[in-house]
């Protein structure tokens, strides 16, 4: 890597100070705006429907945990079942997206073979598929093969639609990693698979963490596939269960938000709690080229 040498500039203390203030202000405003929805959802969940409809953004005049109590006691809402379904679907999908994305991404980045480009373009095409208008063909394909309405049904679309992003990110990341590492391992007698999992996988940790975060939330929140491919209430995932709070002409948003917060709590806590470790993990993965 070519290192350009920049001359020291002096007498810019004032400019420096202004720039620091500006940069920090921008970032703080941005971060605050990003966390606002969570804050808003929390205090809105302490309102009753009437109060929310009358004033969507205001603070609750009479904060109450009534919504939480209702959700946790009403069996019709099947929150617990849907949580289990969502956890299972998300965990399996993300694990397999990571595994498949890593393997395919690595092969596409490092192995020259006929079909490399074809697979690349095929994966790219997958990212251009407008899911919302393809729901009927998707349903028909799954129905004909008897794979709709099963506990594993959603794994197929989630993995398939999550894979291209994972492949591309791994591919892009590996392009910046020198190939010498693997060549050396190969000379030392390490097999292809050995190199793949023992040497490359640890290097890819930062980008794998990123993929895991992105896909966890994507699978957790996915709605359209779940809607058309599942029929049994017992198989519903969290976003489908949330529709129980919506009526034809009115929706109880504070209640939905309470339910969302309850159901999102595990992953949000996980995300915030581990974000420090995650970032440490990212830094630990540094390879110096």
């Amino acid at each position: 890597m070519a290192e350009k040498v920049y001359g020291m500039t002096t007498g810019r203390r004032v400019g420096n100070g202004v720039l620091t203030v500006v940069m920090n202000t921008i970032m703080i405003i941005f971060s605050l705006s990003c966390i606002f929805p969570l804050v808003w959802m929390f205090y809105s969940s302490l309102k009753v429907k009437r109060e929310f409809n009358a004033d969507i953004i205001g603070l609750p005049p009479n904060p109450t945990f009534e919504n939480y109590a209702k959700i946790l006691t009403n069996k019709d809402y099947h929150i617990a079942d849907s949580l289990i379904n969502s956890v299972r679907t998300t965990a399996l999908s993300v694990a397999l997206i990571l595994l498949f994305g890593f393997v395919v991404g690595y092969i596409l980045a490092r192995v020259k073979f006929r079909g490399n480009r074809v697979i690349w373009i095929m994966l790219l095409m997958g990212m251009l598929i407008p899911v919302h208008s393809l729901l009927v063909p998707i349903y028909i394909v799954f129905n004909r093969t008897g794979m709709n309405n099963q506990w594993y049904t959603l794994l197929f679309p989630y993995i398939a639609f999550g894979m291209p992003i994972a492949v591309f990110l791994i591919h892009g990341y590996l392009k910046a990693v020198p190939v010498a590492l693997e060549e050396a391992a190969s000379i030392d007698g390490s097999s292809f698979s050995g190199t793949l999992f023992k040497i490359i996988m640890p290097i890819c940790k930062p980008v794998m963490v990123t993929i895991a975060i992105i896909q966890t939330f994507a699978c957790w929140n996915e709605f359209s596939f779940a809607l058309v491919l599942l029929r049994d209430v017992g198989l519903h995932t969290v976003p489908l269960a949330m529709t129980q709070f919506t009526g034809q002409f009115s929706s109880d948003y504070p209640k939905i938000m309470s339910a969302m917060l309850i159901t999102m709590a595990p992953i949000v806590v996980l995300y915030f709690g581990f974000s420090k470790n995650i970032i440490k993990g990212m830094v630990a993965g540094v390879v110096k080229g």
């Binding site: 008897g146 709709n148 099963q150 506990w151 209430v233 017992g234 198989l235």
Partner: peptide, 12 residues
């Protein structure tokens, strides 16, 4: 075939 049965019992 097309008629599949689920093991999970519907909660509702």
């Amino acid at each position: 075939n097309e008629t599949t049965t689920t093991t999970a019992a519907p909660a509702d």
